[in-house]
Design a protein around this nucleic acid. Structure first.
Length: 650
DNA sequence: CGCCACTCCTTTTTT
DNA sequence: AGGAGTGGCG
């Protein structure tokens, strides 16, 4: 989109009268273009690039922005500050660590945070108390409360069903977590935002200096901004101008504290602000927007949105019903192959899924059909156990107080368990002046190889790739006995070493990796450009593709069963589906599987839907073509006998 | 103290 | 159907 329409031009060139601006941009209306062109407009108009701060939500979005700005502006892009809220905060904090009391800190990811909560929980909760909230749940509550800047106790009382006597203990566990975190010099994701906000609130000197840095603060996906992030923007704006872009209908991060109603209240919350709208959709054909509009119009919430296609008409979206998710996946793979053989590029196709987990059956089919694909989304898959093993050794070598890393590394070795590892950790903390190597040699007599691997990592601290290479070689035989398919996993470690080449110190590498874990597939993508994209809807926001498959669009996933019983959460699910539908440019294909293999995962959810139980239940035939694909090859009439087996079973 | 076998529970989305 | 947590054994 090289030429802008009148609405876009107005937004890009906006010069007052209000100081701050919110651009409400519907899906496909050129939101990214607008923000990119705005930056270009400012720079060309003489604003120093150093005075511009561009904040995004996801790393993907930050990367995309940087790429598009580089194309528009050239090398001057490097002088802009572009990053996620988290990376921006962390960069500020790491420049002045003493101010925040975080010298020599280690950034921990969600998994590590959960382990720390588990530790704190186990000291306060008997094993027999099976109903007591799990560590992961407690971690979620803590995180949510912090993102909303609410005291945990208030949050629990107001927004959860936790009984008071438990709530007090949950708070005690949270406090213990915080204490452990501090003691071990850990920084979790929420700390990054919280520390900077607190610091700015407390220190007028810091506030004054930071405010002087930027003249323009641009925020992408404003509807996903949660209270801490709002607070940060409040602290940094004036005289800096806010330039926010967002779409209330695409707000899908309520679980992180975002409230889409905030964009409606923009003018009440931000004095001296104006709101502009972008309404013309350039991405999709009218048929695709008809389905999207239909979905949104059925919501009890008022979005006041009707997307119109600037491109005109195309083909009618399709809905295909399958007997099982295996049939569905097999069909997807086959359809992709047919299109590819007809000359289409793999990368023109995107398969959208509600959950990272549900992508598995599709992945299997793609692998079997030998279709190159890139999976984007989910968190747990990114960090394979063996990669974390190696990383734990690197981390331990960098921070002798990094208990989680030490325990993980040490217990890799045979005959070293939690107890022995705990002893070593204590010895390291108790003798801060003794060298790490000496302490290890002393505590683990006769196990020299354990200390040697650490020594190796330390020796190569200045060359991350060499350190990783050496460490992997050293741990090779140990890890090979621990994991099956070791050869396949080993290639991940090679990749890790490769990634290390870009960094000039081990510390820098480990820190960046924790904040920005590159998935195997994403890294592999660079070597193989033309691939099909398999992606979670959450990750897909802001992307598009000519042909989009919205897979597993059945009851139980839209809305997701876990959201049932709370209208706000159910309606968020509608927005998730809306985001999925509006990714398509030319063709939209919905597929769903009707078998119990998908619905099995609804167990335990007794909650019933308050609103629509299933968004596509009444999808009219006029706007989609429905095809029943019936039984595929994987099901035989003889399968009915299987049920007998259990009944007879002698 | 570590290891193994067993059971139970799980699976939303991201920084 | 596989992983995390648990309990008993060597």
């Amino acid at each position: 989109m090289s030429t802008l329409n009148a609405e876009q031009t107005r937004a890009v060139e906006y010069a007052g009268p209000a100081r701050h601006l919110l651009v409400l941009a519907g899906a496909g209306t050129g939101k990214t273009t607008t923000i990119v062109q705005r930056v270009a407009h400012l720079v060309r108009g003489g604003t120093k690039p150093e005075r511009i701060l561009l904040l995004t939500f996801s790393r993907r979005a930050a990367k995309e922005m940087r790429g598009r700005l580089a194309a528009a502006l050239g090398p001057v892009t490097d002088r802009l500050t572009i990053g996620t809220f988290h990376s921006f905060c962390w960069e500020v904090i790491s420049r002045i660590p003493k101010t925040f009391g975080v010298q020599a800190a280690t950034v921990i990811d969600r998994d590590d945070a959960t382990s720390l909560v588990t530790l704190a929980r186990s000291e306060r909760v008997e094993r027999s108390e099976k109903d007591f909230p799990k560590a992961a749940q407690i971690g979620d509550w803590m995180s949510y409360a912090r993102n909303c800047m609410l005291p945990l106790a208030d949050y629990l009382a107001e927004f959860t069903e936790v009984p008071d006597e438990w709530a007090a203990r949950v708070v005690a566990i949270a406090d213990a977590y915080t204490a452990k975190k501090r003691e071990r010099h850990y920084i979790d994701y929420d700390d990054m935002l919280e520390l900077l906000v607190r610091g700015l609130e407390k220190s007028e000197a810091l506030r004054t200096q930071m405010k002087a840095l930027y003249g323009h603060i641009l925020v992408d996906e404003m509807q996903d901004t949660n209270p801490v992030q709002w607070r940060l923007l409040d602290l940094l704006r004036d005289p800096a101008q806010l330039y926010c872009v967002g779409d209330d209908a695409q707000s899908i991060y309520a679980f992180r504290g975002a409230d889409f109603r905030n964009v409606h209240a923009f003018r009440e919350r931000v004095a001296d602000a104006e709101v502009l709208k972008l309404t013309e959709n350039y991405r999709s054909t009218q048929e695709i927007l008809d389905v999207s509009n239909w979905l949104l119009a059925r919501s009890p919430l008022q979005y006041d949105k009707e997307l119109r296609a600037a491109r005109g008409r195309g083909s009618k979206p399709r809905l295909l019903d399958f007997a099982s998710k295996f049939d569905e996946a097999a069909w997807l793979a086959n359809d992709l192959r047919v299109r590819h053989e007809a000359g289409a590029n793999w990368h023109d196709h995107m398969i959208l899924v509600r959950t990272a987990w549900s992508a598995k059956s599709i992945e299997a089919a793609l692998v079997e059909a030998d279709i190159p694909y890139t999976f984007i989304g989910g968190t747990s898959f990114l960090q394979a156990a063996h990669v974390k093993d190696v990383l734990s050794l690197l981390r331990a070598s960098l921070n002798r107080l990094d208990e989680l890393a030490w325990v993980r590394y040490l217990t890799l070795w045979p005959k070293v368990g939690d107890v022995k590892a705990g002893k070593v950790v204590r010895a390291l903390a108790d003798a801060p002046d003794a060298s790490v190597f000496d302490v290890l040699m002393k505590e683990l007599r006769g196990r020299d190889e354990i200390a040697e691997a650490v020594h190796l990592a330390t020796a190569y601290a200045a060359t991350p790739s060499a350190a990783i290479g050496a460490v992997c070689q050293n741990l090779d035989s140990l890890l090979s006995t621990r994991y099956d398919r070791w050869e396949a996993r080993k290639s991940d470690l090679k990749l890790l070493a490769q990634l290390g080449e870009k960094y000039s110190s081990l510390r820098e590498f480990v820190e960046t990796f924790t904040l920005d874990p590159i998935s195997n597939s994403e890294a592999a993508k660079s070597s193989e450009e033309d691939t099909v994209t398999l992606i979670t809807v959450h990750s897909a926001k802001g992307t598009e593709a000519p042909v989009c498959y919205v897979a597993q669009a059945q009851a139980g996933l839209y809305p997701h069963t876990r959201s049932l019983g709370d209208l706000d959460r159910e309606e968020e699910e509608r927005r998730i589906l809306y985001v999925a539908l509006t990714r398509a440019q030319h063709e939209l294909i919905l597929t769903r599987a009707g078998d119990e293999s998908v619905n099995i995962f609804q167990f335990g959810s007794t909650a019933r839907a308050v609103g629509e139980g299933y968004f596509l239940e009444e999808l009219p035939g006029e706007i989609v073509d429905v095809t029943h694909m019936g039984f595929g090859g994987t099901k035989s009439a003889l399968d009915a006998l299987k049920d007998l087996d259990d009944e007879i079973g002698w």
